[in-house]
Design a protein around this nucleic acid. Structure first.
Lengths: 351, 351
DNA sequence: AGGTACCGTGGGAGCGCTCCCATAGGTGAT
DNA sequence: ATCACCTATGGGAGCGCTCCCACGGTACCT
């Protein structure tokens, strides 16, 4: 407590050069030790490490960034208002996954919101200044210009869900198609036949894929597609409510609903209640995400679980690889990697 | 869209030097323009700004940090597990306030969690490397070593609540004492006389102050302090429940409860229900924070509101001043600034 | 013995800025 | 006209690191 050891001898913090002098070696050698190069003899390494410890040496990040042209930082960009970030468990789960994986690294994570135009402006500036080595982009809409900006700036990036089937950026996603299928198959297995679907925002590719899975599962089971049973939602509770009301008035005989998210399922549940339908007796309900909402709903909601935390982990993995691969010149765009993780359906009382 | 202008002429991004050449001036002059120095003629400034625009110049942060010995970044440190951060609206409100105030700045905000030992280790390393110009520390406990570490490293810092009456670090807090008083006065005005208090964690100074306010308000109204009516909680729902049970068994005649947080009030409400007490007929209930919980409780909860978002804003203000003041040598420790913001009681059906 | 190969190492040359000193010119007072 | 003084400007000297080339030494080959 009373002594700060050998620190601050000459006023400031120790530099590489001082460590070198102390260890009786050259600057280059200390640099090699610090960076874990194998081309250093054990004896030298030990001497340097001792000097580092004695002086309490910590490398100066700015100098390193300047000399090596890298920042050892990556950004998690959330192109949404902060509110959604705090409201939807999706984001915190991703963050948790990324954070867990990052702990093994020397990298620093920046959290950047880009919901408003102004924030996007700042972000563009920030990226142009190359202040991060890579970017994780979550919740991307079809017409978002951010991905293009990133590839233009040649900043490695990974997105949480492809924007289309022709996505070129590396991405990590869960199997939305399979998730959609499994929801429907689950309901069919429970004897339901008139299964409606409340979709998510259709400018989100994943939401489209859930619809595809829904349609194919029904068709494979021999049911003709009935477009009257598909109603677009927007991932909000109100949207779910609205969609449910529309569905009920259009086809009062429906006996099941697959909602594209738990939040929308909550809205749908409310609408079903108001219409006097019992869950699951009259109408079975299945959501998507398996969030806290699903567990706490009355009745508890069956839901398609995505391994969100793992998605975060995998996104970081991909990004780090991407950053490492940036060395051999001009291999841009070759074999982009798309990871798809399996979903599984968690059955509860609502179906 | 199709052209990226003059960018990338010589492979990389433009440098100060290139801008200077383009504008026909020296490096120093460009630097002055970039940094808003007044000692530049209007004509020269215009020429430089034109060159900057044409080349799409963006200063290299690393170089600037190295040369100027500052990072233009500050950290918001949350010495708690991430879960609390996402669960409690307090943190997101602070973040929102800080973010809003920061938007006018060139500064970058880093969000750092230091809940686990490992994370704290990393944080210490990070701070030792002086990678931020200042730190905002929220939710500090009495025995937290972080504040001392910060002053040892001579890193400007502001904390969200003083650790004690003798706090030396600049801090921003709401008037916990006044908040506690107002809750009690509100209940007294409603004709309640046997007012219990469920406290927060007493190693949080603010929680203590609420207790002080509670005691003084009762005493000023002529009621003798009855220590049987004070029960420690821990800011959790379970803690609130437990405390309420204890209070009821100790003194069944109580007719009001002031809980040190809305979350604890929720726990208390549950316990009151289980004991068959009606709210507010039998027992009036007042919480603290005026969070979403308060509005959604059944019945809606009266609560002491703190201007959390403004606290965030003020914290940033203080920190920026602190950073700016760091220039004139050795004025350390002189007139630390402590800001205290007023609370106000939001009356609802629970009291 | 001479040659070739590699290994561990030292240190120069920057990375792109900011800081600050020096300089040139302009202004007003003497 | 002279001097003192101020303002706008140029550019050298670093900030602390990484990269890379060059060096001496050792080991192994022919």
């Amino acid at each position: 407590m009373a002594s700060h050891g050998a620190r601050g001898r000459s006023g400031g913090r120790p530099t590489l050069e001082e460590v070198a002098a102390r260890a009786g070696v050259g600057r280059g050698t200390v640099s090699r030790v610090i960076n874990g190069s194998p081309r250093v003899s054990d004896a030298t390494r030990a001497a340097v490490e001792a000097a580092v410890a004695e002086l309490g040496y910590v490398p100066n990040t700015a100098a390193r960034a300047l000399a090596a042209n890298r920042t050892d930082a990556i950004a998690l960009v959330v192109p949404e208002p902060e509110t959604r970030f705090f409201t939807e468990p999706y984001f915190s789960d991703i963050l948790r996954g990324v954070g867990a994986e990052l702990a093994d690294t020397e990298m620093q994570l920046l959290l950047i919101f880009a919901g408003s135009d102004r924030e996007r402006q700042r972000l563009a500036q920030y990226l142009a200044a190359h202040r991060v080595d890579g970017v994780l982009l979550v919740s991307v809409h079809a017409d978002d210009p951010l991905p293009d900006l990133l590839s233009q700036l040649e900043i490695p990036a990974v997105i949480s869900g492809p924007r289309s089937a022709a996505e070129t950026l590396p991405s990590v996603d869960s199997d939305n198609y399979g998730g959609g299928r499994s929801a429907v198959e689950h309901l069919l297995a429970r004897g339901r036949t008139r299964i409606a679907h409340i979709t998510g925002r259709l400018d989100v590719y994943g939401a489209q894929r859930r619809v595809d899975g829904y349609r194919d599962a029904l068709r494979d089971a021999g049911y003709e597609a009935d477009e009257g049973l598909v109603e677009p939602g927007d991932f909000t509770e109100e949207g779910g409510h609205r969609a449910m009301v529309a569905l009920l008035s259009r086809d009062p005989s429906l006996d099941a609903v697959f909602a594209g998210s738990d939040v929308m399922a909550a809205g749908a549940r409310q609408a079903l209640r108001e219409a006097g339908r019992r869950i699951p007796e009259d109408v079975a309900l299945v959501g998507y995400d398996d969030s806290a909402i699903a567990r706490h709903m009355d009745p508890p909601l069956s839901s398609v679980r995505q391994p969100i935390e793992e998605m975060g982990r995998r996104m970081l993995d991909l990004l780090l690889t991407e950053i490492a691969d940036r060395r051999p010149a001009a291999s841009r765009g070759l074999e982009p990697r798309q990871v798809v993780l399996a979903t599984d359906l968690v059955g509860r009382a609502s179906s």
